[in-house]
């Protein structure tokens, strides 16, 4: 990518994510907005159509991004903040590859606007664990061979992590049906579902699924 053409993703890749999260209050070609960032979705306001700053918590750290109201949360994460865990597949809420947690609740980031998360807590797959220190759930995915091409996996993991969080101390009572319900919005064209269910039940300390077709 030529350094003179400033696409959002290209520019931000060069700058590095850490700097972006703390200092990307402005787009490079737009110095005109001196508005303080929008910090919640309830204060009366007229936002845009020009880029406007919005602040939220992203994977535990403060984030600010300056975007037009029409920019989806998924676009802002991937293109402006270079957080590429959530994947873009259908862009219509129909596959779950873009699943993130917003205040602990799984949401399709492609069907939200970036401005919807002002003041909210956004969690992507990146906050679950690191390649060096996988979370229990991620390690169970590996053990159970719960991914093949991996394209659905970040969304799958977020839906499953949200389920485990929601069940808290009663997670050891989880059933295969509940896990299936929780991942009913995560389309896996490689058909890893039974392995995902087994991995989640093991992580939860719940009884393993009774033998099903395709079970490892």
């Amino acid at each position: 990518m030529a350094s003179s053409t400033l696409t959002r993703r290209g520019l931000l890749r060069g700058v590095g994510t850490a700097t972006v999260v703390t200092s990307c209050v402005r787009k490079p070609n737009d110095g005109k907005s001196d508005h303080p960032p929008i910090t919640n979705v309830h204060t009366p306001a007229e936002i845009g159509p020009e880029p406007t700053s919005v602040s939220f918590t992203l994977d535990g750290k403060p984030a600010i991004v300056q975007v037009e109201p029409r920019v989806t949360l998924l676009e802002a994460l991937r293109l402006d903040l270079d957080v590429t865990g959530p994947k873009l597949v259908c862009d219509r809420g129909a596959c779950g590859a873009c699943t993130v947690m917003v205040d602990g609740v799984p949401r399709n980031a492609c069907m939200m606007l970036a401005h919807d998360v002002a003041g909210a807590n956004v969690t992507t797959v990146a906050a679950l664990g690191t390649p060096e220190a996988l979370s229990e759930l991620q390690a169970a995915f590996v053990r159970h061979d719960a991914l093949q091409c991996g394209f659905c996996t970040s969304g799958m993991l977020v839906s499953c992590a949200a389920l485990l969080q929601r069940r808290g101390p009663t997670r050891n009572k989880l059933t295969a049906e509940e896990v299936e319900d929780a991942i009913a919005g995560n389309l896996c064209r490689c058909g890893t579902y039974p392995h995902v269910v087994a991995a989640v039940l093991e992580t939860a300390g719940a009884p393993p699924p009774t033998s099903r077709r395709g079970e490892a």
């Binding site: 979705v41 309830h42 204060t43 009366p44 306001a45 007229e46 936002i47 845009g48 159509p49 037009e68 109201p69 029409r70 606007l113 401005h115």
Partner: peptide
């Protein structure tokens, strides 16, 4: 999507 504004009103 074409550009649009977001309007937040309280009543």
């Amino acid at each position: 999507m074409n550009p649009f504004s977001l309007v937040r009103l309280s009543t």
